[in-house]
């Protein structure tokens, strides 16, 4: 069952020379209890997608230029102020990247966890405190840290608190925006374990956003790869990890390979993503792509299906090759049939 449906979402920043289109016709679905991952480098529109889903885009000065965001079939963009307040933090919770600035330095972390519970579940002070303490035990945080202030805790601990705030209201969807990027390698692993535990316990769906393919691979069943505001590839995690189709996905996997660092030279993706002011309809990765042909600069791209299993990509060349193979196979097949008939 689809929990969150994003259809043709366009988010842009007004610019004196036009629109800086940071999210460009992005469509995806997050099903119930599923972990869906969005991966891409910084500036590709991952976080702006999340911000749009949460309807925070006005706060950062962005505008939504089209599309639809449906949560349980309800149109999020038509929500009034009250509905939005219940939606944000209540039905959809968010874990931010930088917890140090996401938490209020003037309140104890325990109070901040209890606050969400009170606001969204209607619990009284004592009840909320009890629930918050349960959450602390669940997260593996010592009970005496309830009265600690954010500056007294380590980064890993704070990130756990942020997780606690998110699950306090029993949300149906948790959006985790780069939850582990600010953490150390060992702590990162612990936190991923915790996220998995959260998902198991609360049965919430998770929309995980990260630039680290490893994090996404560990958590998600399906992933979307974003580049320059567009989804360039989407499919099951295993399939994308094993058979990436789009050159950008391939390069990203190559660059993130931990074993590749033994070599003399790290493989990188040369160049920069394009500036998204009035972006072209042609392939946006063309300038950085090793296999780029002149057609890549001329032809408009669309989403092509790689197979029937929901694996999509945005590479013209791969799509053409598949078509060519298909027709060749068709010819061979036709030839075989003819031979067969002749033999009879």
């Amino acid at each position: 069952m689809a929990l969150l449906e994003v259809k043709d979402l366009v988010t842009y920043f007004p610019h004196e020379k036009g629109k800086v289109q940071v999210v460009d016709h992005v469509s995806f679905t997050v099903n119930e209890r599923e972990c869906f991952g969005i991966i891409g480098e910084s500036g590709c529109g991952k976080s702006m997608t999340a911000t749009s889903v949460m309807q925070y885009h006005n706060e950062v000065g962005a505008k939504i230029g089209g599309g639809q965001i449906l949560f349980e079939g309800r149109d999020v963009m038509s929500f009034g102020k009250k509905e939005l307040q219940d939606y944000r933090g209540g039905e959809v919770a968010m874990i931010m990247q930088n917890t140090m600035s996401a938490l209020d330095p003037l309140f104890t972390v325990g109070d901040q966890v209890a606050e969400t519970i009170r606001r969204h579940t209607g619990a009284g002070k004592k009840e909320a405190r009890k629930r918050a303490e349960e959450i602390f035990t669940f997260l593996g945080i010592p009970a005496d840290r309830y009265k600690a202030y954010p500056h007294e805790l380590s980064g890993g601990m704070l990130q756990r608190i942020a997780g606690g705030i998110a699950i306090g209201s029993n949300p149906k969807l948790i959006i985790a925006d780069e939850p582990t990027t600010a953490l150390d390698a060992t702590v990162q692993l612990q936190y991923m374990q915790l996220l998995k535990k959260i998902q198991k316990q609360t049965k919430a769906a998770i929309l995980l956003i990260s630039h680290d393919i490893r994090v996404i691979q560990m958590m998600c069943s399906r992933i979307a790869v974003m580049y320059a505001g567009q989804i360039v590839e989407e499919g099951n995690t295993d399939e994308i990890m094993e058979h990436p189709v789009h050159p950008y996905t391939k390069a990203l996997l190559e660059a993130a390979n931990p074993h590749a660092l033994k070599v003399d030279r790290i493989s990188t993706i040369n160049g920069q993503p394009p500036f998204l002011l009035n972006p072209p309809a042609t392939c946006r990765f063309a300038d950085r792509c090793a296999n780029c042909t002149h057609r890549c600069h001329q032809q408009e791209t669309g989403l092509y299906a790689d197979n029937d299993g929901g694996h999509f990509h945005r590479c013209i060349l791969a799509a053409e090759e598949k078509e060519r193979n298909a027709t060749e196979n068709g010819k061979i097949e036709a030839f075989r049939i003819r031979e067969h008939k002749a033999a009879i």
């Binding site: 692993l189 915790l194 931990p258």
Partner: peptide, 23 residues
């Protein structure tokens, strides 16, 4: 050893530990 392991793990174990290891 723990540091080296953390760098290459690609799968999470099912038995989820909840103890925080703090310095």
């Amino acid at each position: 050893k723990e540091l080296l392991k953390a760098g290459v793990v690609t799968e999470l174990s099912d038995n989820v530990e909840s103890v925080v290891h703090e310095v």
